[in-house]
Design a protein around this nucleic acid. Structure first.
Lengths: 186, 186
DNA sequence: CGCCGAGTTGAACTGAATCAAGAAACGTGG
DNA sequence: CCACGTTTCTTGATTCAGTTCAACTCGGCG
């Protein structure tokens, strides 16, 4: 599992912990366009993308707004509902055929109490989400559409290759037409 | 302390816990315009406003951008740096003469381990920050300047009364001129 | 082959920024 | 308590990035 690789870069994984993880984590597969979570459901699962890609999105005035993308090695969940046990406002969907490792909420709690070192993990994931959210806010508030696009280009070029234009546009907070023009180089 | 009042609405405060809290929490006062935290410092303190008001802000291209306001009964800190122990990019400043209850990071940790029920507290504060951030993102992305202002008007009318226009404008992500026009009713 | 979703292109429109003055309010010291 | 300077707020004219609406192209797939 690629997940172990990723985790071991954050914390040291003892054989004990590895055993626990193996028993807690399940693997699932989803076909392209399948939903892992629908709005209004409770989000109990933290997904880790082993292969393929996911996106989180919600509807705003009939239009889909993509909130995040998760490629191989990324975590993906409806973050706030996951930690607060409120209903999700967002959907999680497979962008391509995808394999994920799944850790659910109750088991994560167990991990925390049995292996305190995993709390660091939770903190790191949280920080990740929070700082990405902040970054997006700053981006949308201060950067032009063009700058936002080139930022994405720099930081996550694979996304641009693998994701349809419309999703990219809504993620960047612009219309598809504008993104198309940017791409054309004005 | 108003803090106890607020806390007891979230979790049950045993006499034990109350004792611990009393010993951990200190009170401080700051004069109008004084800084509680400056950018580039580490943020070790979680503030709870007993009286007066605070704001968090940072600089972007020479201009101050206000990130949040905290009035009586609100928590205020540079959230992400507080939990992740990175340097703060934001400043915290007293908007008026202010009295705060201060809980610092190490003591919060101690609370967590000695009184597990306080973890709920941490979660609630986190949720609060996170969901407010998300709300702001959605606001800026989809609402017009006017709508954002009336939202604020509805949700936190006292802020509008107590905060100078320029700070409000940057908080709403618009220029002072635009806000002035909105206020005038076009 | 023809259709359908995804992407492109064009023209007109618009919300808010910018630049530039003024007016009003504020507080500090004489 | 007034006078002065500074900060805060308002108003006007102009400009511009990005939206909207509409039509058109292209590639793939049933």
């Amino acid at each position: 599992m690629q997940l172990f690789n990723s985790l071991s870069q954050i914390i040291n994984i003892s054989t004990e912990l590895e055993k626990a993880l193996t028993s807690f984590i399940s693997k699932k597969s989803f076909k392209k366009n399948e939903f892992l979570l629908r709005a209004d459901e409770y989000c109990n699962s933290l997904y880790f993308v082993e292969k393929g890609s996911l996106r989180g999105f919600y509807f705003h005035e009939e239009k889909e707004i993509t909130n995040w993308f998760a490629l191989e090695g990324d975590f993906g969940t409806s973050f706030y509902p996951f930690i607060s046990k409120t209903r999700s406002y967002e959907n999680i969907q497979a962008l391509e055929d995808v394999e994920v490792s799944v850790l659910n909420n109750t088991e994560l709690k167990k991990l925390y109490s049995d292996f305190p070192e995993t709390e660091k993990l939770g903190r790191i994931i949280l920080e990740d989400y929070y700082s990405k959210l902040e970054e997006r806010l700053i981006n949308i508030q201060f950067k032009s559409a063009k700058e936002r696009y080139s930022n994405l280009m720099e930081n996550r070029p694979q996304i641009i290759q693998r994701v349809p234009l419309g999703h990219l546009a809504s993620y960047l907070g612009i219309t598809q037409e504008t993104l198309s023009r940017i791409r054309a180089g004005n």
